[in-house]
Design a binder for these strands. Structure first.
Length: 473
RNA sequence: GGCGACGUAGCCAAGUGGUAAGGCAGAGGUCUGCAAAACCUCCAUCCCCAGUUCGAUUCUGGGCGUCGCCUCCA
């Protein structure tokens, strides 16, 4: 089983092997905590989660770093309007980010470095770049000299001529040598002091530019060369391109060996969801509309391949919720069904084949949608076998192994249900009483009532089962 | 203007040079007090045109359409 990943740098799927045997160093671009993350942001973050989970499945230990950008122009603006410091302004959004990640069941990264806590590392790197003449000071600001880095544009495949032809580069008010030179350090303005957004540096008091934090913090936690660097496609240019320029000019080493970029999420109109464009949807919005975070998770990682665009829609979320429901139902059924006398040997063999095929799909550039499709096909077969009483002890073990394989990525199957409220339990008992006395009208009334409150009941030979259901139809 | 992606059933979506996984929705059944769940059956020739080929949805060219990046952006 060979893991192959699509490397943006080469535009091809490549066999993946980390620099250090058995250990993957991975840096992923995290949130700018100036606002609540929208579902598009969350898609990227869950993509990182999928990557790290599959690396673990493939037997690698991971050191995963995800930065928190807690200083940038938007934060400065907002903090100013709010009359507070950037550190205070950012707090609730940072907390919301971690809440989102938890309810979407993303595994925690090993490190979540904050930009403002790594100013010295950035200052060091900028000093090195100035010394090497890859950067220059202009009126208190420091810029990276793109002319000093011939490889610039290799990742995004944009050449300098193309950039100029864009003609959208604003007329610059600063003394940059070239319009495409980008800021490493911005001179402090008086108002920055009140916001707590100014630091001393050999080249003048100020604050860091956006890109330098990733170069400095990845070096601090992962060293000069990363195995994997990933982010949304929209970070490819200029952000990732700039990171490469800074890091490689400063360290004289390959910065990241593999670049993974996840496609964006579109809103209902089919256009990219973005904060600046106005309308965007947060996890909180979806939950308020009755969607289960587990369905949102499934939708974001399993509905479509990470390199294809997806459109957020109620229908798609509902389909995702149904798939989650089916998976959970199946897992539950396999677990609670007593082993049959007969064990269908063919079924066990097929289960092993499906497990292998599932793994292969994931190894092929993380094709989770394909893997899920294969699994669902088999689940139908397994359900039929359960109906027919052909699932014995061996088959149960095999099927549970398949479920575990899937849940290693999905993590929506074994996620535990919230406990039953005492009142709901009482109502179920009451309904059972009504059924025993054949008062079906009353029994149905109770069931309907529970359903409207998001609890579905199923009568079966071995008792009443309940489960939470999506309130969205 | 430059660079790029995509266009598969009502919806979402995987995929391959040899006549198209899966999920949702829908229809009909089995089971059940009724439901639900589960299972069974039904439901597409892959945007258009031309070319390469024994054969293309899959390769090449053109067209149409949608979208992205080139500017803050996951």
């Amino acid at each position: 089983m060979t893991l192959r990943l699509h490397n943006t740098l080469t535009g091809a799927k490549e066999v993946f092997a980390p620099l250090e045997e058995g250990h993957v160093r991975m840096y992923t671009c995290g949130p700018t905590v100036w606002n609540f993350a929208h579902v598009g942001n969350l898609r990227a973050f869950l993509f990182y989660d999928l990557v790290r989970r599959h690396l673990n499945v493939a037997g690698y230990r991971t050191t995963h770093v995800m930065n928190l950008t807690d200083i940038d122009d938007r934060i400065l603006d907002q903090a100013m309007h709010a009359g507070t410091t950037i550190a205070e302004y950012v707090k609730p959004y940072e907390a919301a980010f971690f809440e989102n990640m938890a309810s979407l069941r993303a595994e925690r990264a090993e490190h979540y470095p904050r930009a403002t806590e790594h100013i010295p590392e950035m200052v060091d790197m900028i000093s090195t770049l100035i010394k090497h003449e890859n950067a220059y000071v202009a009126d208190g600001d420091v810029y990276f000299r793109i002319a000093s880095f011939p490889k610039y544009g290799a990742l995004s495949h944009l050449d300098r001529a193309g950039l100029k032809a864009g003609a959208r580069v604003a007329a610059d008010k600063y003394d940059k040598e070239s319009v495409s030179d980008f800021a490493l350090w911005k001179k402090a303005h008086p108002e920055d002091e009140k916001l707590g957004a100014a630091w001393d540096a050999p080249f003048g008091r100020g604050r860091p530019g956006w890109h330098i934090e990733c170069s400095a913090m990845s070096k601090r936690y992962l060293g000069d060369t990363l195995d994997i660097h990933s982010g949304g496609v929209d970070l490819m240019f200029p952000h990732h391109e700039n990171e490469i320029a800074q890091s490689e000019a400063a360290n004289h080493k390959t910065f990241a060996r593999v670049w993974l970029h996840s496609e964006f999420l579109a809103d209902a109109t089919g256009e990219k969801m973005s904060k600046s464009a106005g309308g965007f949807t947060t996890l909180r919005d979806l939950v308020a509309a009755g969607h289960d975070p587990l369905a949102v998770r499934f939708f974001l990682i399993a509905n479509a391949h990470y390199r294809s665009r997806v459109r957020l829609s109620t229908e798609a979320l509902h389909a995702a919720a149904e798939q989650v429901r089916r998976l959970r139902e199946f897992a539950d059924r396999v677990k609670r069904t007593p082993a049959a006398e007969t064990d269908d040997g063919e079924l066990a063999k097929r289960t092993a084949e499906v497990r292998a095929a599932y793994r292969e799909a994931l190894d092929d550039d993380l094709n989770l949608p394909q893997g899920i499709g294969l699994a669902f096909d088999h689940i139908r077969e397994a359900n039929a076998a359960l109906d027919a009483g052909r699932v014995g002890a061996l088959n149960k073990v095999a099927l549970l192994a398949l479920i575990d394989d899937m849940d290693a990525h999905l993590d929506v199957i074994r996620a535990e249900e919230p406990g039953l409220a005492a009142e709901v339990e009482r109502l179920i008992a009451e309904r059972e009483e009504a059924r025993r006395s054949r008062d079906f009208a009353r029994a149905d009334r109770i069931r309907d009532d529970l359903k409207s409150r998001g609890i579905a009941l199923e009568d079966s030979r071995d008792g009443v089962r309940w489960r939470r259901i999506s309130r969205v139809t």
